[in-house]
Design a binder for these strands. Sequence first.
DNA 1: AATGAATGAGTATTCATTCAT
DNA 2: AATGAATGAATACTCATTCAT
Lengths: 192, 192, 192, 192
Amino acid sequence: MTPGRKEQILDAALTLFAERGFHGASIPELAATAGIAPASLYRHVESKEQLVNEVYRRAKALLASALFSAVPVDASTPLREQFHHLWWALVGFARREPRAFAFLELHHHGDYLDAESRAVELRVLAPIAQVVERGRAAGVLKAQPAPALIVTVWGAFVGMVRAARAGYFTLDDDMCRAVEHTTWDAIRGSSP
Amino acid sequence: MTPGRKEQILDAALTLFAERGFHGASIPELAATAGIAPASLYRHVESKEQLVNEVYRRAKALLASALFSAVPVDASTPLREQFHHLWWALVGFARREPRAFAFLELHHHGDYLDAESRAVELRVLAPIAQVVERGRAAGVLKAQPAPALIVTVWGAFVGMVRAARAGYFTLDDDMCRAVEHTTWDAIRGSSP
Amino acid sequence: MTPGRKEQILDAALTLFAERGFHGASIPELAATAGIAPASLYRHVESKEQLVNEVYRRAKALLASALFSAVPVDASTPLREQFHHLWWALVGFARREPRAFAFLELHHHGDYLDAESRAVELRVLAPIAQVVERGRAAGVLKAQPAPALIVTVWGAFVGMVRAARAGYFTLDDDMCRAVEHTTWDAIRGSSP
Amino acid sequence: MTPGRKEQILDAALTLFAERGFHGASIPELAATAGIAPASLYRHVESKEQLVNEVYRRAKALLASALFSAVPVDASTPLREQFHHLWWALVGFARREPRAFAFLELHHHGDYLDAESRAVELRVLAPIAQVVERGRAAGVLKAQPAPALIVTVWGAFVGMVRAARAGYFTLDDDMCRAVEHTTWDAIRGSSP
DNA sequence: AATGAATGAGTATTCATTCAT
DNA sequence: AATGAATGAATACTCATTCAT
């Protein structure tokens, strides 16, 4: 009946799983956070495992759409600019959906994730990989293996968000710009 | 009597906690992995919480010693060289103690960590911070805020190790060298 | 649903706690006696400690009501008659609720009793104390300190019930009358 | 070796069993209180059950000897005087061995007591019964059934000690005398 | 659609006891 | 004689899940 019930459940699950992990969040807690009885939860969800997987796919989809929307259809856009779009798309995501971001970080492993959930993993980095490949081909990026470049970008970004969440600093524009700068220098080629 | 009992337990705990997290690893499993009965575990450990904390402190100590040993006493060493030492000390640690590395990544949050365990957190990054500060002062590194530089280095490193663990590539010398390269370019100053 | 569930549990607890004491009665036993699964017990009770305390308060309330109902509102009733009422009210209680009586005897100490439970203790002897005080004031009872009189009455009564329970005799009217007689002589003044 | 070892154990057991009951006192606690290791306890004692039984018999023996010594060999002693001896022998025991007294009260039931322990029960009240019987025969005591008289005396005494232990008053000479007085009046015949 | 009641399987932890030293 | 180490069985309690209503 209540149209948002499922939404409430997924939202509660996102929060609790992100905070305490899969095994640390119990069904009674999840139900209580969602404002319903434990038994009622099973009207909307098949099992705890199915629930994490659903949350996982949602979070990934959110991240993926943030990323895809950042890569311009027009391939002629200068790479530096593309990188800039990508970077701030990521920042936007981390700011808008901090719980989803934290959840994804904590759950990209785990026996409880099914095959389909794991599959999403790779697809998500595709936009980054695509930009990188194009840049390498055009000689604008370093000649290093693509994975080295990707890992540097993604790692620096995650490190920045984590540090902010841990309280070392706030995720303000200045900081994001600073790390965008270091990260771009990390991957760009040496030619002017 | 068996001198290695405690060691066995801490070892088993390191493995299981790293693989499944605190709540995902049960006492029966921990005991079985250590090759003893659940009840026997309590002759060596006060509680499950005390056990994670002990494992946590050990892992941090291992990481800390790897880092400290990498910073040369002689401050006149060129910074690029210092960075090189640091980088490969980290690589050495991640290779030698992959479980400790994974454990630390997964457990730097968590209600079950006591005050003392959390305190170690900051002390560990001190050597990196120290090198970075010196470099900034000398104009060898970028003028960006130190945290931005540190986060880039540490993030890229963690990203690399994680990606390797996830199976995207192996943590071989070539890959480590490649990311060392990108990372150095990320933080070094623009002067020749 | 089953409306008597809680009742069944409290009843089972009364029996087992009275027979074996708090530590001697286990949750599985309590649940089995109540005809439910151990886990189900916790839908009705918060913890074992809360359960004893609930049983304790119920038993005390039963005893208290038996006693209060025995003291006539009309203070002009001759004291011998009042004592008679009191005595047979006690006998009635011990006969009707032998388990409650046994339980109270065994549990008026114990760390597991909370502050509120202990508080009931004193209130219960109030009716006896009241009768005794009135009698002393009127010179119908001995001039001995009230506690000496109260303790004699209550002690003789408890002794009688205990001996009956131990099988030395049955708690029949003759025996109760006999001890009523001795006890009255114990406290009554020497005047005709 | 240490000659008093067994004594220490029995003493610790007396204390703990009296305070917390059989099931409430654990072997580790008993051993700790006795100042030895749990395993060492089993050098001196066969099992926890055997230990309670041993403590039980000791306590009963202590009480029995207090009572027996109070009944004068000379049967011609006036009964009031004999009662007086008996009463103060009991008082002496309750004061000298408060733990033994408390222990006996708490443990005269219990599955863990073996046949022999239970047997002691009856023998102990024999001296009281003997005095009572003699008094009834001589017409100095009430004509009520002997058990009624015994139960009154013993019950009032136990009630007094319990109340003192519960903190309602101290077991001083005045109080003991007062209750001796009420109790004697309870059982003595009506003749001058 | 929602839930109170119920429970088998599991949780961390303790206990009484044995045994090698 | 004494004990550290070990453990099977038990303890109080929680969980994920089902089902009747």
